[in-house]
Design a protein around this nucleic acid. Structure first.
Length: 581
DNA sequence: GCCGTTTTCGGCCCGACTGTTTTCAGTCG
């Protein structure tokens, strides 16, 4: 059972318990449990089988038992009994911004509302006005909220949100009252999708700054405005929060608003145990309330007895413990990448020539690129027939002869056919320097068939890289069902490299798995999956994923220099030829 | 319901903003 479903059910239980007037700490325990499950970086079923679920922070005996029952049997009696006490639909109402358990209950108790449709009707009939705790404004906001929920756009790709955020940031830098300004929140942590944009600024004149922002043409609607915080919705539909603090408060506020909430909660607990109080305005000594002076985030972490934790790691997945024990990874950086693989040219479905791709890649400071157009069965993408491959390789050889500081590797993105075989016969496929094996068809196989299909591709000695391992498209398509642990074990055994596909719609492998992959000694490669010159810069999103996945330079194959990469690929082919002899 | 160098009971992170209220509950992050 998918962990997101389990988390939803725990949240739903929390909602019912709150409704019933249970202890707020108990309802929070369910919500914390839901978050803990949501952010697991291991397979839930494995954790249960190995009896390790109870070790997860936030999951105690009771939740362990309930989650186990739910996952192993597909049912949870406690939940089903509880749910039966309530009309269906109530939980859906929580999706509307501004509605929580208390207000939903009030709507039900007074007007009998159980669905979003009924709620909308009641608002249009003006029935909410006059209810205790409700008024004209609340009713309007609920209608707006319903409209927004119906658009379905509650999350945005990192790339999309990033573009909008940078545009705002740029304008903010033109505001003379602003001293410092920076993107915070999940965007700064490079989450693959974000719900909103958080911008933090420092100024001695916060009011002017607020006014400057709400008057920007990007702002479609102001949803809240206070002395230090303004909330707006931008033209593109995404919500943005702007916080303004004083220059002295800025480092603390940056740390605070970068989050994650879970990371900050951990830090505040730790601070408390050290006799300190921590909030967005500072780190304060308990005895005299004096601020511990910190010039930047680094000094805040130092004051808490640990080295600086980069934003990408601040997800409460062990980074605080690692920092305290001084075993944080030295994260890979964009400048560490020496070259990029997985590029499509006009030979298949790319829009630029080999020459154009090579020139731009070289211009961006890389020393090599790996061309991998689609293989022959990819009709939809004009996959290469054998004679096309030969033609392309001749062109590559010619181009390579013209450079001494750049190299094009000759590869292919081979479809993994439904039976797990690759797309060209063995005696032909040997002509490539590398092969990226990817699934592009028959996504709806059952878990075990899909796993076996990919395992077979990994067994194939020609497979150098496993491309976009889950096939997910963020916000539109879940990845195919597969047993990732078995895939990874096989990749480790066969020394197959796992791709971090940097296309912002994919970001696949997910960062939550990357940590495990590197612990297993498997190498990852950050690939743009570029179909044009413009998409070469996607690579940066892949680097962000690698950083979120705790990866160091040594974990990433394309940190090898040209000679190292040539040697790596040559050795793999040698090993293969030895095996077939 | 969870958790623990204050450890098996007794706490549980912290603050901003809104809308309704006339001092604060609810929601959000």
């Amino acid at each position: 059972m998918d962990k997101h479903i389990v988390a939803d059910i725990l949240n739903e239980i929390g909602f019912y318990l709150e409704w019933k007037g249970e202890s707020p700490f108990k309802t929070r325990a369910y919500e914390n449990g839901a978050r803990a499950v949501e952010s697991l970086d291991e397979d839930l079923e494995t954790l249960i089988q190995e009896n390790r679920l109870g070790n997860v922070r936030g999951i105690g005996k009771a939740l362990e038992q309930k989650i186990s029952e739910l996952v192993t049997t597909g049912h949870l009696k406690y939940y089903e009994d509880l749910k039966a006490e309530f009309p269906s639909g109530l939980f859906e109402l929580l999706k509307i911004p501004g509605l929580g358990a208390k207000k939903v209950r009030a709507l039900y108790d007074t007007l009998g509302i159980t669905t979003i449709g009924e709620l909308e009707y009641a608002c249009r009939e003006n029935r909410l006005v006059g209810l205790p705790g409700f008024g004209e404004k609340t009713q309007q906001n609920i209608l707006k909220g319903i409209a927004h929920v119906r658009t379905g756009a509650d999350r945005y790709l990192l790339s999309e949100a990033g573009v909008m955020a940078y545009s705002i940031l740029k304008k903010g830098r033109n505001c003379p009252q602003i001293q410092s300004i920076q993107i915070a929140g999940s965007l700064r942590r490079s989450r693959e999708t974000v719900k909103d944009i958080d911008i933090l600024a420092s100024s001695d004149r916060p009011k002017d700054v607020m006014e400057y922002f709400v008057s920007l043409p990007d702002v479609a609607d102001v949803t809240g405005q206070g002395e230090t915080k303004t909330s707006v919705r931008l033209q593109g539909g995404i919500a943005m929060d702007l916080r303004v603090v004083s220059p002295e408060q800025y480092p603390y506020a940056l740390q605070h608003f970068t989050g994650s909430r879970e990371h900050n909660t951990r830090l505040r607990h730790l601070a408390k145990s050290m006799g300190l109080k921590m909030n967005e305005y500072g780190l304060f000594r308990g005895e005299d309330g004096q601020r511990v002076s910190c010039a930047d985030e680094e000094e805040i972490y130092q004051a808490l007895g640990m080295p600086y934790i980069p934003p990408e790691l601040r997800e409460d997945t062990g980074e605080v413990e690692a920092a305290l024990e001084d075993r944080l990874p030295k994260l890979v950086e964009s400048g560490d990448l020496q070259g990029i693989f997985h590029m499509h040219s006009r030979y298949s479905d790319g829009s630029d020539t080999l020459m154009a791709l090579a020139e731009e890649t070289r211009r961006q400071g890389y020393h090599y690129m790996g061309i991998s157009d689609h293989s022959r069965s990819a009709y939809y993408a004009r996959g290469l027939k054998e004679e096309d491959v030969i033609r392309q390789q001749e062109e590559i050889d010619k181009l390579n002869a013209g450079w001494d500081d750049f190299h094009i590797f000759r590869g292919i993105e081979s479809n993994i056919l439904p039976d797990g075989s690759l797309d060209y016969p063995d005696d032909f496929i040997d002509c490539f320097d590398f092969v990226i094996a990817s699934v592009h068809s028959n996504f709806r196989m059952d878990r075990s068939s899909m796993t076996n299909r990919i395992l077979k591709a990994l067994e194939n000695p020609h497979t150098t890289i496993l491309g976009h391992p889950t096939g997910r498209l963020l916000l539109s398509r879940d990845g195919y069902e597969l047993e990732m642990e078995r895939i990874l074990e096989k990749a480790a055994e066969k020394e197959v490299v796992i791709e971090i596909n940097a296309n912002p719609h994919r970001l696949d492998l997910d960062w939550r798995w990357c940590k495990k992959v590197r612990e297993m000694g498997i190498r990852l490669i950050i690939n743009p999956d570029a179909h044009s010159v413009a998409e070469i810069s996607n690579t940066g999103f892949g680097t962000a994923v690698a950083r979120k996945g705790w990866c160091e330079r040594k974990d990433i194959l394309n940190c090898l220099d040209t000679a190292g990469m040539k040697e790596f690929l040559r050795k793999r082919k040698l090993d293969y030829n030895r095996k077939i002899l």
